[in-house]
Design a protein around this nucleic acid. Structure first.
Lengths: 165, 165
DNA sequence: TTAGGTGCAAAGAGTTTGCTCGTAT
DNA sequence: ATACGAGCAAACTCTTTGCACCTAA
């Protein structure tokens, strides 16, 4: 079977080697934000003949082709997710490193206006919330686009940046 | 003269060496978001007997003491600013690396609510806008808290992350 | 006096790259 | 056939650290 990402690669005219096919496949897993190490782990699990340099080269290539987007959630390693239509932002669970996506269209407009007011054309935005699971007793029933990734929180767990409250 | 940051260090009971005094001084320059290299440059300009290891150790210490906050604007290097009361966010000029601060209290409330809706207690937030100077002809007259720093945009200027539009 | 800071160089972590060999087209 | 990809190890960038020496309190 041909994975979603592989399809995109072919459409872009990329040469499809065995390694790329594998990496494309693990990248096609939805709702995920793996870092390179994680990708490497999953890829070698499917086929041992992949080096981490290839993973680095591939994610970089796919980013340049607009197939992937690089994210930086703090912790010093880049994380990748397939380019999507429709903006969303991220809430990072500071305890587990888990990422939850959310959308907020009203926001978009607001940010645009802020930039304009400052005399700038908005090129891109970064909105991330760092949070901690609220008391389970009062968990809401609405469970939106939940992703499943758990990447180790950080190297020496120097806390992710952000304006603290 | 005793700089603002030096005062805070003394209050925290830190031993004030010559190096620390210098670093505290350059950190006291307002509206700035220097990276370590920039701090090192400014510090050695005032006194040659400072090593970059000391700069690293000092910013880390001051961060732990709550005197500084570490920021990550993409580009792989940490940038520092004195802790302030009142939250603000950042707009980064993608062409020059210049940083402009802005506040938006309405936002704060909104973010809080989003996190709550997802079942999380908000720990911190990160909101950054990446923009490009709008056409000078139509520059607005309102010029808000403008900072003066210009740190080289990035290493190999791999563009800063963000949800592009 | 002495707990703690500093300089230097070496070590780490994440990522990129030169080179040689291999393979998709 | 050949342009492009892969593997490996070395190189690079930013940051931390071990150790011997120095200094503020």
């Amino acid at each position: 079977m041909e994975s979603r990402i592989e399809r995109l690669c072919i459409d872009k005219g990329l040469k499809m080697t065995g390694q790329r096919r594998i990496i494309a496949r693990v990248l096609s897993e939805p709702g995920d934000h793996p870092d390179v190490e994680e990708l490497y782990r999953r890829a070698t699990a499917l086929d041992g003949r992949i080096s981490i340099a290839t993973v680095y080269r591939t994610v970089r290539l796919l980013e340049e082709k607009g197939i992937l987007e690089r994210r930086d959630f703090g912790g010093g390693r880049a994380r990748y997710e397939p380019t999507e239509h429709g903006h969303h932002h991220h809430l990072i669970d500071v305890d587990s490193g888990r990422v939850i996506e959310f959308e907020d269209p009203a926001h978009e407009q607001l940010l645009q206006e802020i930039a304009e007011r400052l005399g700038f054309d908005l090129v891109s935005t970064r909105l991330e919330l760092f949070g901690r699971r609220a008391d389970p007793q009062k968990l809401p029933t609405a469970a939106p686009r939940r992703s499943t990734d758990t990447v180790k929180p950080a190297k020496q767990s120097r806390s992710p940046q952000g304006v603290s409250r």
